Amino acid sequence: MMHHKHYLDKKSAPYISDLLTKHFLKNPNFTEIVIICIGTNRYNGDSLGPLVGSRLSERLDGHPFVHIYGTLAKPVHALNMHKTLASITSKHSRAYVIAVDACLGQFYKIGTLQLVEEPLQPGVSLNKQLPPIGHIHIKGIINNHGQLNHKVLEHTSLTFVQEMSAVISRILVKSSQDIIPKLAQEQQPIDQLSDHLSSGR
């Protein structure tokens, strides 16, 4: 299922964050959140994911229940994606995984944020064959889909992409704040068992 709002709509952040939290609650057996922000810092248009990742790192870095992959300093892209996903699978086997990426679309949809309740298929606009990512994903339509997609990504307004990344970051921070107490409840019995064993009782 897909939900969408324009990023300039003041209701977009609360609307999409609420839907994201409700999606998590359909299967609340996860113990942590992993947010994978796909893209590169080489093209303005493709920097949406890394911009979101960098903003989230400033807000959520070091949180025991939330792990961010893909920032401007350490982007996740086609060349390192398989290695990154293998590492995430190994380290975070019970994580609720949210993917973030930029995409191209029809002209009248530029600026739309899409919440899609299925794994992300990265690289589709550029005809790349990459593995699906996440339990759910957010896409931002940053420009018009056409024959010269690489050029379109290169010449997209950076200011526009930064503004959109700020809205997506607010969505993910709010959803994380709503989901974390549920993760803590799921984690608590495990922690109590560990305490029980370590005390020898």
Rank of each mutant, 00 (worst) to 15 (best):
V152I: 15
S57T: 08
H137T: 06
S165N: 01
G62P: 03
M1K: 04
H82I: 13
M81G: 06
I133V: 14
M81W: 09
Q187A: 08
R55M: 14
G70V: 08
Q121M: 12
L197T: 01
L56M: 08
V34S: 05
P75N: 07
S12D: 09
G123F: 04
L158C: 02
S176R: 09
S176I: 00
L85V: 09
F65V: 05
H137N: 14
Y96Q: 02
E186S: 13
C37Y: 05
I35T: 10
G53N: 08
P119S: 11
E117H: 11
K109P: 01
I38E: 00
V97L: 11
N144P: 00
I38M: 12
G49T: 11
H3I: 03
H92N: 09
I142A: 01
Y69H: 14
Q147K: 14
Q121N: 13
E58H: 00
G70R: 08
Q185V: 12
A95R: 12
D101E: 06
K139F: 02
P64I: 15
I38K: 01
I179P: 02
K91D: 13
M164R: 05
Q177S: 04
S90E: 15
G123P: 05
Q177W: 01
P132F: 07
D178M: 08
S93W: 09
I68M: 13
G49Q: 08
T40M: 02
I171N: 03
I38V: 15
I179T: 10
K174D: 15
A102M: 14
Q106K: 15
R201S: 12
V52Y: 04
I171K: 01
S12A: 15
N41A: 07
H82P: 01
L193Y: 11
H23G: 00
D9S: 11
R170E: 15
L51E: 13
G123V: 06
K182Y: 14
L130D: 05
S54F: 02
F65A: 12
L85A: 04
R42P: 03
K151G: 03
L172C: 04
H67Q: 08
P14E: 09
L172E: 09
A95Y: 07
T21V: 14
K22C: 00
I133D: 02
I180G: 08
L148T: 13
